[in-house]
Amino acid sequence: MPPMFGSALISGLVIGGFYSLVGAGLNLIFGVIKIINFAQGAMLTIGAYLTYWFVITTKLDPYLALPFVALVLAFFGFIIQKTLINRVLGQERTSQLLITFGIALAIQNTTLALWGPDIRSVNTFISDKTFEVSGIRVGATAAMALLGALIVLLGLFLFLSRTRMGTAIRAVAQQADSALLSGIDVKKVYAIAFAIGSGLVGVASVLIVPIYDVYPLVGEHFGIISFIVVVLGGLGNIQGAAIAGVFLGVIQNLFAVYVSDSLSTAILFFIFLITLLFRPQGIFVRKMRVS
């Protein structure tokens, strides 16, 4: 494999891993609750600041913040669902759309007010390490991110397919009426799904911080791209989202190297439009679908 192709491919897989994590979380929330969480990117920013705060407070390695940040964000998601979104679920579509949008704006402006616009960096014990195999180079933080994304996504699939709670989540996503009939507390399951979707963002944010640093808009691009991931992977299709995320990351980087760097973000939106027009159900056959 030529080093340039190899490095572009690997870095594409890494960036794709982030897209997958954030996109899978978004798709879980959409699949179960049927709302679009516009705050996904903003929550990534919160996670990044939490990681930063954890590091400067405890002086520990940022990766050790992972359980803490994932849990705090999961709890945050749970509370948002319980206190805000459950209230508007019965209402018209517009208020459901706008509420997460409002949450996103509130988060953005709060982070700015709390931490200011400065770019903050944290280093981890592997910040300086790079792996090289026959000219193909990948930073250790990137490799860690890819590995982390893989493990967490695999864990998510196992959880959804093998556990009672996972099955209950899929049941609610597919047929909320029957789930109620079975005695499942559907609103509680909604909150749990939102918590898991947010927790995935928490994981992503810890993995992102050593690579991208921390600033008020760090999550925004990922938030936007996660919508492309969801559409490409199929609404409610978690496995599709995971694959679509990686696919988009690789396409973006290979396109940037071999065709045009300046159009490498635009190509993603182009794929988005083409998918919406010609294959709105997403490009993958349904495998692991929550709904």
Binding site: T167, Q174, S178, S182
Partner: peptide, 30 residues
């Protein structure tokens, strides 16, 4: 359901993408 009162629907509303067995187990869990 938890009090022991349960109904079916005129048009079935099973969980389409769960297996037949899972469809029953969800009810047990509930």
């Amino acid at each position: 359901a938890r009090r022991g009162l349960i109904r079916t629907f005129q048009l079935t509303r099973v969980f389409p993408h769960l297996t037949v067995a899972e469809n029953l187990l969800v009810f047990a869990d509930g």
